[in-house]
Design a protein around this nucleic acid. Structure first.
Lengths: 241, 241
DNA sequence: TATATTAATTGGTATAGACATCTATATTGA
DNA sequence: TCAATATAGATGTCTATACCAATTAATATA
């Protein structure tokens, strides 16, 4: 598996080998990798060389590491593309914080008039409603409600949502996600948000509404998120054409 | 510059130190950094530790390395972006509304510490302060404070500001505007904003802070705007690459 | 002079080991 | 039984050293 006499650097051989295990499904998201010392012993190479392979895979978002616990396989990596700078998970990671989610609700509901209009479906049509609390370092940062047309995105389960919705849509359903539109506004937290976000009453929040579309311009998702404004800011990079 | 007794890792201290040199303009795009061995000798730290700092900066696209030649400051830190740098005027016109402005203040003031840091100029350096109310269809929408380094953008008058600041910079002064960075947050309107925007007390507002830079990465403008959140939303288009 | 060689300098790869910090588990003591 | 304490094992930081590979400049040679 590792050829020390090869002109290809050892760390690169190991890197490709691990990447291959992930892409072939022998290592699944969340799985723990052997420890650095195990790799070191197994292949008779230095631990620093193992680390170099792993560091590269962490930078490429194939893996993530938790001090004292181990190294694990990342959820699908291209999720970051769509959200860009305003993706909660990526944003938090970029700030050196550990993001997590708490699923509050997952069910199919009939679309009301507004939702039907946003999703471009008939009124009372079936829609997945997914409600989540987004946390950073276990502190509630945002309350997120996602609505997905059930006729368009079929076979959705809470497990899929927990892993990666976008990879399910793109890989399993073979539909191509093209982009989206986001609107940001400010408001005062309502009672439900105060409770779920564990914040004082009457403090300002940021509301983000996003609708995401497929390549054929059908809307497959509408997300409404409420961010606590005392802890969260939206950052946007602008480059002139 | 490097404190070995600090609990902050040495590589991280060096990393921040180099990043600071770049962002403050003491290191310019294309400039060569001292070699790894020079850093190692200068600070009395291991070359591997220097490399860890540099590797991180290469991953963050601050630097790039060429084997046998050296390490250099990257030309453009960020890749192409999704949205352009638009002014209030352009934004309102795009929404089919008639924009106008009311100039409240136009003077040269000495930069305080925060402003000096944001504009990358010495403290007490001369800065244009331009305060404006932005209106759409004669309704106040935002209170905007613009700060411009007077040594960088010379000969500014209130007449120029009334017309188009950006075209003055690009056409008359022949300086190229490259982009900027925006931060959006929510707050409760303060007394001044309540008065100027003619809004009720305690309503939420959107705060936008933008810093704009020239092609040579000098910051020429810092803008802080307060938008009434009941009338104004930020819209962002995301398109997948 | 023009070309080839060599030396010096740069980043790239790899090793071995030390100690720190964090996590989970097992053990001990009240 | 419950809580504090020890420990084993994981990643994180750092050192010191060695040699490889690419580039550049100085030097020797035809």
């Amino acid at each position: 598996m590792i050829d020390k006499r090869s002109p290809i650097p050892i760390y690169h051989q190991l890197e490709e080998s691990i990447k291959q295990l992930i892409e072939s499904g022998q290592l699944n998201p969340g799985d723990a990798l052997p420890s650095e010392r195990e790799y070191s012993d197994k292949f008779g190479i230095s631990r620093m060389t193992v680390r170099q392979a792993i560091i590269n895979l962490v930078n490429d978002r194939y893996l993530y590491r938790v001090k004292g616990k181990g190294t694990f396989v990342m959820e699908q990596k291209f999720e970051q593309n769509l959200h860009g700078l305003t993706s909660f998970t990526e944003d938090m990671k970029a700030r050196g914080m550990e993001p997590s989610s708490k699923l509050i609700n997952f069910e199919i509901i009939p679309a009301n008039a507004k939702l039907a209009s946003l999703l471009q479906i008939p009124e009372y049509g079936p829609v997945y409603e997914i409600q989540r609390i987004r946390l950073a370092e276990d502190i509630p940062m945002a309350f997120e409600r996602t609505y997905i047309s059930a006729n368009l995105v079929q076979g959705l389960t809470s497990e899929i949502v927990k892993n990666s919705l976008y990879s399910y849509i793109e890989e399993t359903l073979s539909m191509k996600i093209a982009g989206g539109r986001q609107v940001i506004e400010a408001a005062i937290a309502n009672a439900e948000e105060v409770k779920l976000l564990e914040i004082p009453e009457h403090i300002p929040v940021l509301i983000m509404e996003r609708s995401s579309r497929l390549e054929d311009n059908r809307i497959f998702e509408v997300v409404k998120s409420t961010y606590r404004a005392d802890r969260y800011k939206f950052m946007i990079d602008l480059t002139r054409p």
